[in-house]
């Protein structure tokens, strides 16, 4: 079949109402849908908690974070587990992109007079909201690992969790958009996203890694999420990078991911759209 890819210029004169109302309604649907599926809510919280408790207790004190003070592994692993919740929620909510495509839902959005940017914005913010909420819920365990959760610490953590959620959701969106099966999506997650998390300093610190591994970890944007969160939660135990540098990296990461998602969606072709 003859196909010809055509890229249409992105319209810049969209009025804010035209963009925000559809984005809002897509966001709203994403959130409502999630909380109407109890199993998803439970699964996304329970599995990292289990992971955290089992792995964290297993290592116990046999672990040294490299810093002078010996930290229990449960404490060290805590920010990593939180990021894991965020990762799972972000990525899995974007599986809905594939489901929407398989059903006719996405079609009905595509034929509506909605700028494509509203679709990305609504969907990504929906996933971001869910991931942020799930991540912050995990903060109830903070006192058990000796974190004094003051207002400043909480606000800082919320900002970091939001940025990580946003970047990962946008990444999930960009991966899910061209796919037509959830199986393929799972394959990508196992191949690509789990290693991304493993090498983010969630499980072991950069300082204990061999030099090539350390290099991989340094170019992994998720590392900065974990590091930033760790610095925010344990001000006494500063990480490898300064909090500001980490947050700046996260913002950059978010913008790049959102840009990619945005470009993916704006392709209009002679191929079937869904």
């Amino acid at each position: 079949m003859a196909t010809r890819a055509e890229t249409y210029p992105v319209r810049s004169d969209v009025q804010s109402d035209e963009l925000l109302l559809p984005a809002f309604t897509l966001w709203w649907r994403e959130v409502v849908r999630f909380y109407r599926q109890r199993a998803r809510v439970v699964g996304v919280i329970a599995s990292p908690v289990l992971f955290w408790l089992v792995i964290g207790s297993g290592f116990g004190r046999s672990f040294s974070s490299g810093g002078g003070t010996s930290q229990h592994y449960l404490d060290y692993f805590y920010p990593g587990a939180l990021i894991m919740i965020v990762l799972f929620t972000s990525i899995f909510t974007m599986m809905s992109v594939i489901e929407d495509r398989k059903e006719g839902f996405l079609l009905s959005v595509l034929v509506a007079p909605v700028p494509r940017s509203a679709i990305v914005l609504g969907k990504v913010l929906g996933g971001t909201t869910l991931a942020t909420i799930q991540g912050l819920i995990f903060l109830v365990f903070a006192p058990f690992v000796g974190i004094h959760l003051g207002l400043m610490v909480f606000v800082m953590a919320a900002i970091i969790v939001f940025l990580v959620s946003f970047a990962l959701t946008a990444l999930g969106f960009a991966i899910a958009w061209p796919m037509d099966s959830t199986q393929a999506f799972h394959a990508i997650i196992n191949l690509f996203l789990i290693p991304l998390w493993l090498l983010s300093g969630a499980l072991f610190p950069l300082s204990s890694a061999s030099s090539w591994l350390r290099m991989l970890m340094e170019i992994n944007p998720l590392t900065y999420g974990v590091e930033a969160l760790r610095s925010a939660l344990y001000p006494a135990n500063p990480g490898e990078f300064s909090l500001i540098a980490s947050i700046a990296t996260l913002i950059l990461f978010s913008l790049v991911m959102f840009g990619i998602a945005f470009l993916m969606v704006n392709r209009r072709t002679t191929k079937p759209a869904a």
Partner: peptide, 28 residues
């Protein structure tokens, strides 16, 4: 134009009114 696809486009997790509310918002 209004379009009705062969595939299902309504969201089963939403109520009838919510589905239409969502659709309405998409159309401004």
């Amino acid at each position: 134009i209004g379009v009705v696809f062969q595939a299902q486009s309504i969201d089963l997790k939403l109520t009838a009114a919510e589905n239409l509310m969502h659709q309405g918002h998409l159309y401004g």
